[in-house]
Nucleic acid binder design. Structure first.
Lengths: 165, 165
DNA sequence: ACAATACGTCAGCTTTGTTGACACTCCAAG
DNA sequence: CTTGGAGTGTCAACAAAGCTGACGTATTGT
């Protein structure tokens, strides 16, 4: 079960290598969320609020249904988070212009300020990691992560990339 | 705020590039946990059980305190998970030989069987991603992830790598 | 007119994390 | 040999964030 093409240069597909990849993901994801988590903990917010804020900032005017699909949670779960953000004046919900059933979500100035604080913290770590590893490593990082996504998530990820052109 | 050394080849450190890295981590981590999650959902277990099982398998005989540090949760939280695993006969807890305060944790045969099912699912996806991306991309992936870890987590990660030699 | 869609909300449950308090065992140092 | 502290386990209470199911309302499109 351990060697697939013994002798060839497929050593990077060893079970041991794969396990190291798994553990690297686990430990790195912890680092990845650590800085925003610290900021959020000082307020009444959690990771779920961060995610909502991030993607509303990324795609201003997005609808609830779209956000639901991106975040992969239930309506009820998102709604709880969204309601507190709206009550606290970080997010605005406007009735859709063409389709009045839809709500278009926007960050307020205060919301943008928090988004900036959070993603600044996260970007700082990411920037340091990218710089340490170098451009080729970053390209590889991105390639592996993209290959690891579910098919629909890969589509949404690509959509977001194209949207920012 | 967007360009740091305009003109140079540091385009990979653009805020936009960093944000894409952030989103890639988010979507990829979802894929990363999706397969084991599906298996666990069919039992009475969750991700926390998976993590405990993984690291007990990785370092048989590890102590509770060590596991606590690796997983980064509280004693009470881990204990709840560990207790159900012991009750269900997946994990054995032996009183330490030299220091009888410590408990050395081991997987039973049944525990190993579950560990195998779970990590098989996870490895399959990881293997596909690694193969798609190629060995150089994998090396870059690992380099970036390692740079993204907290310092103590990086140490634990290296320790685990060395331990399997 | 009617079915489907988008959204919000109520109620209840689960997992996994948290604090705080307390007890027990055991090791080591005084 | 006593005593302090480390390692462990457990009780209680709570919070964040996910889930299902059910229901209501507004709006849209057929």
């Amino acid at each position: 079960m351990s060697d697939y093409h013994s002798g060839e240069s497929l050593l990077f597909l060893t079970d041991e290598q794969l396990r190291q990849g798994i553990e690297a993901m686990f430990f790195a994801y912890r680092g990845f969320t650590a800085d925003p988590d610290r900021i959020l903990a000082s307020m009444a917010y959690g990771r779920a609020h961060h995610r909502a804020i991030h993607f509303i900032n990324r795609a201003p005017g997005t609808t609830v249904t779209n956000l639901l699909a991106i975040l992969g949670v239930t309506k009820q779960s998102l709604n709880r988070v969204l309601r507190t953000l709206i009550e606290d004046g970080l997010v605005q919900s406007h009735v859709g212009k063409s389709d009045k059933r839809e709500r278009n979500l926007y960050l307020t100035e205060e919301g943008k300020a928090l988004e900036n604080r959070l993603s600044d913290a996260q970007r700082t770590r990411m920037r340091a990691a990218f710089r340490d590893a170098g451009p080729e490593a970053v390209a590889g990082f991105r390639r592996v992560l993209e290959a690891m996504m579910d098919k629909d998530m890969r589509r949404r990820y690509s959509d977001l990339r194209e949207a920012s052109s």
